[in-house]
């Protein structure tokens, strides 16, 4: 199967600066990293033993930027990572993320979002590795493609030999808003072991006419209904961000007003 990619990461990331964030053993931590420079970047989020790490990588680039980034996620024994990865802006941008449940009891959950428009090209190259037993990963990638934009998702889950009782899930959901937009999606599982629970899938849809009619019947016009449904799709990826300041910043960068509580 031909794997689409926008960059050959090894060439462009070889000399990229590396930023590292971690949660100490037994602690809870939250890290937010926003990248806006015209240079490739590598970011490492590392949850140490029995810790919980909430992390957000926001690639917020101007319209001319063309560059790749790499995110590494490592969870040690009993640790949990909840990571949000977002493409915003750029002409051509690729984020590769490698998640590794390094020790037993590790769990990595990822929500990734590309909100692509005009002629933007956004790619996610995901690679989840389970080398040991009793680990868990859950990846959800949400892509919106409007105008003449292109989004790519190429994801693999690898469960290595001996990694019994692994649970690994991968889902790519796409919303296509224009006839000229394109979406490529390749979710793949490589399982070298019995006694695991895995699922993967990909779906691509346009806006649902039944959703339109429901909103219209409540007085909401077509343009507002489209904006509301699209925003709802995007919120699926970012609503779980617990840190309020980070959530506010992400919403602001994506041009979304934060919802008021009742």
């Amino acid at each position: 199967m031909k794997i689409p990619a926008l960059f050959k990461n090894n060439d462009l990331l070889a000399s990229a600066p590396k930023k590292e964030f971690s949660s100490e053993a037994g602690s809870s931590a939250s890290h937010f990293f926003e990248w806006s420079d015209h240079a490739a970047i590598e970011v490492v989020f590392h949850a140490k033993k029995d810790s919980t790490l909430e992390c957000v990588f926001l690639q917020n680039l101007d319209a001319k930027a063309e560059l790749p980034a790499r995110v590494q996620l490592i969870a040690d024994r009993g640790a949990t990572i909840r990571c949000t990865i977002i493409h915003q802006g750029a002409s051509k941008s690729q984020i590769s993320f490698d998640s590794r449940c390094a020790e037993e009891g590790a769990s990595i959950q990822i929500q990734a979002l590309a909100n692509s428009r005009l002629n933007q090209k956004h790619a996610f190259i995901a690679n989840a590795v389970h080398p040991v037993p009793h680990t868990h990963s859950d990846l959800k990638v949400w892509c919106v493609a409007n105008d003449e934009a292109q989004t790519i998702f190429n994801g693999t889950v690898t469960i290595e030999k001996g990694a019994h009782h692994t649970q690994a899930f991968q889902k790519n959901k796409n919303l296509i808003l224009s006839e000229k937009a394109t979406i490529d999606s390749i979710p793949q599982l490589f399982i070298f072991n019995d006694d695991v629970k895995c699922a993967h899938g990909s779906s691509t849809s346009t806006l649902d006419p039944d959703q339109y009619i429901y909103l219209q019947s409540r007085g909401i016009g077509l343009a507002d209904a489209e904006a509301m449904i699209t925003r709802g799709f995007i919120e699926n990826a970012i609503h779980w961000i617990e840190n309020e300041a980070t959530s506010a910043r992400v919403h602001a960068v994506l041009g979304l007003n934060q919802e008021e509580a009742l």
Partner: peptide
């Protein structure tokens, strides 16, 4: 008239099968 105009004129339909719109909160709707 389109549905939104009918709604603004105060016609209302309680749907038999109301559709789900993930990510849109009840409050904002």
């Amino acid at each position: 008239l389109p549905p939104e105009e009918r709604a603004r004129k105060r016609l209302f339909l309680a749907f038999q099968y109301p559709v789900a719109i993930p990510g849109v909160s009840v409050a904002s709707f």
